[in-house]
Amino acid sequence: MKTLTSIILLTLSTFFGNAQESEEKGQSITVTIENITNNNGHVLLTLHNEATFMKAAPLKSEKSEIKDGKVTVTFKNIAPGTYAIIGLHDLNDNNRMDFTETGMPKESFAVSNNPVLYGPPQFAQAKFNVTSQNIEMKLMF
């Protein structure tokens, strides 16, 4: 019984030690969206680098419930580099953006830096640098 207890304690201490260590390996990016028109569906937030932006699966993604027209999501353990974030109000919870017959988005979306868009977002408009500081940003739908 002592051996089993020792193994469990060792395993737990290793797990929590590694969890704490990995927390310290990167920065966090906290994203807040406050102007959501209703609480229907969820907000999807995706983190991209230039290679994945609007082309491939995100580096990280988060899905958040909307409360009182607001969400706050934190991406953790982000290595230094250049990134962009895309946010989508997924009204019907189908985990993708829906479009009209003419190709216009049916659901609200935003990208980091909140640029005024005249067409699909570009990485150059949305990019930001992660260095040695945690980042807090607001997106506007």
Rank of each mutant, 00 (worst) to 15 (best):
M1V: 06
K2Y: 06
L4D: 13
S6M: 12
L10S: 15
T11M: 14
S13M: 15
S13F: 13
F15N: 08
Q20G: 03
G26D: 02
N35S: 05
I36L: 15
N38C: 02
N39P: 09
V43I: 10
T46C: 05
N49P: 03
A51L: 12
T52R: 10
A57V: 04
A57M: 11
P58F: 01
P58E: 03
E62A: 14
S64K: 14
K67M: 14
G69A: 11
K70H: 05
V71H: 01
V71R: 05
F75A: 06
G81D: 05
G87Y: 06
N92E: 10
N92F: 05
D93H: 13
N94Y: 10
E101S: 12
P105K: 03
V111T: 08
N113T: 00
N113V: 05
P115W: 07
V116P: 00
L117Q: 11
L117Y: 10
Y118H: 15
Y118G: 12
Y118E: 15
G119T: 08
Q122I: 07
Q122C: 00
A124T: 11
K127Q: 15
K127F: 05
V130F: 05
Q133R: 09
N134Q: 01
N134A: 03
N134W: 02
E136I: 06
F141N: 03
F141V: 07
